[in-house]
């Protein structure tokens, strides 16, 4: 029974250490979206600092739009709302203009 006890201790320690972290592991890797709930309200200009657009992939079926606020917080925007669609188009247009320079 000493061996079983040793195994229990080792595994218990492993569980404790892993409490705050997880690592992808072969078939168990569990890809997913980063946004759970989406913001549809318009963000006032003074609150908006930056926008990050994460492309869709096997990990997440939808494109994710994350707004960085002047307060330092980040929130998920709803890419289906009208003003966010316009915002994405605006960003893409600016991106193309910058590439031409």
């Amino acid at each position: 029974m000493n061996v079983l006890l040793m195994l229990s201790v080792v595994f218990g320690v492993s569980i404790t250490l892993v409490a705050g972290a997880v690592q992808p592991l072969g078939a168990g890797y569990n890809s997913r979206c980063v946004c759970l709930k989406l913001e549809s309200r318009v963000i006032p200009q003074d609150n908006l600092r930056r926008v990050v657009i994460l492309p869709r992939g096997p990990h997440c079926k939808t494109t994710e739009v994350i707004a960085g606020l002047t307060s330092g917080e980040r929130i998920c925007l709803n890419p289906r709302t009208h003003w966010v669609k316009k915002l994405i188009m605006f960003i893409e247009k600016k991106k193309q203009e910058n590439n031409k320079l």
């Binding site: 320690v13 492993s14 250490l17 892993v18 705050g20 972290a21 997880v22 690592q23 980063v34 946004c35 759970l36 709930k37 989406l38 913001e39 309200r41 963000i43 006032p44 609150n47 994710e64 994350i66 606020l69 307060s71 917080e73 980040r74 929130i75 998920c76």
Partner: peptide, 25 residues
């Protein structure tokens, strides 16, 4: 207009593994 962020719309942070945990596993 005062914009108050809904905390539920904050994206989930990606999880990174501490070196000690990696070594333990």
């Amino acid at each position: 207009f005062t914009f108050v962020p809904d905390e539920k719309t904050i994206p989930c942070s990606s999880i990174t593994m501490a070196s000690a945990v990696n070594i333990s596993f």
